[in-house]
Design a protein around this nucleic acid. Sequence first.
RNA 1: GCGAGAGUGGCGGAAUUGGCAGACGCACGAGAUUUAGGAUCUCGCGGGCAACCAUGGGGGUUCGAAUCCCCCCUCUCGCACCA
Length: 828
Amino acid sequence: MGAGQAEDAARYDPQAVEAKWQARWEETGAFRARPDDSRPPYYVLEMFPYPSGRLHMGHVRNYSIGDVIARQRRMQGHAVLHPIGWDAFGLPAENAAIKHGVHPARWTYDNIAHMRGQLRRLGFSYDWERELATCDPRYYRWEQLFFLRMLARDLAYKRRSSVNWCPTCATVLANEQVVDGGCWRCGTAVELRELEQWYLRITAYAEELLRDLDRLPGWPERVVAMQRNWIGRSEGAEIRFPLEGRDGEVAVFTTRPDTLFGVTFMSLAPEHPLAGTLAAGTPHEASVAAFVARMRARGRSERAVGKEGIATGAFCRHPLTGARLPIYIASFVLMEYGTGAVMAVPAHDQRDFEFARAHGLPVTVVVQPEGERLDPATMPSAWEGPGTLVDSGEFSGLASEVAKGRIAETLAAHGRGGPTVSYRLRDWGISRQRYWGAPIPVVYCERCGMVPVPEEDLPVVLPQDVTLSGRGGSPLATHDAFVRTQCGRCGGPARRETDTMDTFVESSWYFARYCSPADEREAFAPAEVAYWLGSRGVDEYIGGIEHAVLHLLYSRFFTKVLRDLGFLALDEPFRHLFTQGMVIKDGAAMSKSRGNVVEPDDLIARYGADTARLFCLFAAPPERDLDWSDAGVEGMSRFLHRLWRLVHRVRDRLPPPGTPLPPAVATPDRDLHRLTHVTIRRVTDDVVGRLHFNTAISAIMELTTGLDEAAENAGGAVLREAVDAALKLLAPFVPHVASELWEATGHTTSLDVERWPAVDPAALVQEAVELPVQVNGKVRAHITVAAGADETQVLAAALADARVQAHLGGRALRRHVVVPGRLVSLVA
RNA sequence: GCGAGAGUGGCGGAAUUGGCAGACGCACGAGAUUUAGGAUCUCGCGGGCAACCAUGGGGGUUCGAAUCCCCCCUCUCGCACCA
């Protein structure tokens, strides 16, 4: 079709427009982040993706949200750091290698290349020069350094214990990575295995991690709550019960020291060290060993049914009364919590109660609730509430709350325990028996034992030439050239550690590395870190809620460790956290098995990136789940086409950019002028304050509708102001089409660096306002009064209205309320 | 059980501090234009003929409640034998 220029311009072609602007941004390095002391810094970060192969709509939404913030803050005059990278280690790469014979590195970097292309095609304003991949030795060498420094400070250590084992992934999982008794990645039921593992001492920071949650007002409450629960601080007492007839004691943790005189037996976890030894050489030995073996074979969730147990035949003594207490092994006692042993008080703990009834053990009531008398013989369940102590020696008669402290003190005086605090949080197990991860930089010397790799020998590079069988065991263990090495201390023969680190370690500090991703001498260049992170941390961190106690807890821990190691001057990594909702279609999350996946590539090919972004931002406020709607996408596309036509229709009437408004905007133009500034105010509030992009976009839509209606008659300068404002306000959402129209309306500057429009309060002033009038609580009329009218005038106008008169029906006015600018309320 | 959040038209959602409930978009209906359109434009669009009734249900506070208070129901998410 012999298209003239006019026809070309009249047609919005997103593909062409987007290609043009993406090329220009790349040429000019428009989004390069440089510290600039004349500007306030702003660091906006989205959780970096795992390079799974392709983006999904959740990514598009996540990164669209971040990009609006980045672009808007830039226009507000901030120097903005908006980086992107790849969480590139992990099991899928290794599984793909086993299945398809591709090397994990190849698979990973191919995926990165493809996904990088997708991100560029969406027009996100990243500083691509800061892109990093965690599988790059130039990245993980610093992680190995942190590990060595942690090792030197006893914040990293190795210990043998029972750990969560995923048989499908053939590796160990941290407690945080076990979800409902299954693997967080594949869902397979987790088994317990006895293994020697590396741990990071996150428990040393339990108190600070908990306390500083109060310093995170910019975090969603529920994430804070989840972390608080996860850390699980509880105050109570440690109490030690001496064993009968042998040396040693059983230590327990209890939150109810007040019930100490109600203890009738002891319960140990099957993994408790005493579980194997107490019955040794007695008639109980075989049955206890069998029970322990049976329990150990069970996973955590299988154990959670029923209250099984067995007597060891051994006894301990009550620390205050000397009473003889039988020791049991019980299925429900967890080795990971407290001391792995529980003092059983059946009258006042439901679990102990059920166990006692099942095993015919005595029940002793020592706390009587107010207005009730518990009878051990007939009570149907334990009384776990407060009350008055009975049968508790010198403590009888005390309120249970008071008795807690008294008994704990008395125990301390007798050297049998004392007040203490227990946490649910366990140390973070980071050993993984897999290949595609960062090597743990230690060696095992025949002479010196475990020896850290000297810092100057870092990085310990992951070898490329491995065979991945998928048959379990760390693949590195079979790599002779890797394993065989020299001791860094004595130079003798040594074996390398063949476990790799949990990939959550890499993602715990990447946000800081973005400050100086290419620095070869230091992990974090001080000047860059001081500027971008300072003591504030990331200004806005955006991602899914699923990492509430994984990544987000580990990152907080790492930040505090790096601070204490002198790498950062930061207490908390993320000043403000934004958790976006999921993308839902047909009532469920998009997934291949459901067949409800929308491919970003298809969407972009059909409508362009601007439409894809706009829909993600418009369909719901970002913290809520987003219901996908193909028709809704059409609507967004229509809006952009309409905008395009509108701007091209009016562009010939626009005076040159920068034409000043007349000193006083005259009446027919006032409405558009006012609408422009009302919109600026609404959009600014929504984007800066609440991050409610859906309402910001609808406000801009209203402006374009108003513009459309006023276009024929509006004066040039006011029209220019409205068009410019609309394009600037749209720039963060739909940067390509906004830039193109900006250029089409005669601007020679780049829209990306334009200043965000400011509200002119004078423009908001109205000459007359319409007010609703309520009579006895119902709106009965509308009156128009001068904007500055005082209460008397407004009331007079309301009473003069015929409909108001009719509804008053001649009755006397009993009361009136005039809210200036809002309404009039009359009571008759 | 504990913790967090949500419940508003046919649908997604709006109402920022108690002040005109339903902005904006979708879907739908009518019309215009068009060779045609799943393009574009205009109008309409919670229910009810109306008085009125409507923000999960029931009470309350108030001149006025989607919004605040009390009780209840439903749904989503997280944690859960944590001693």
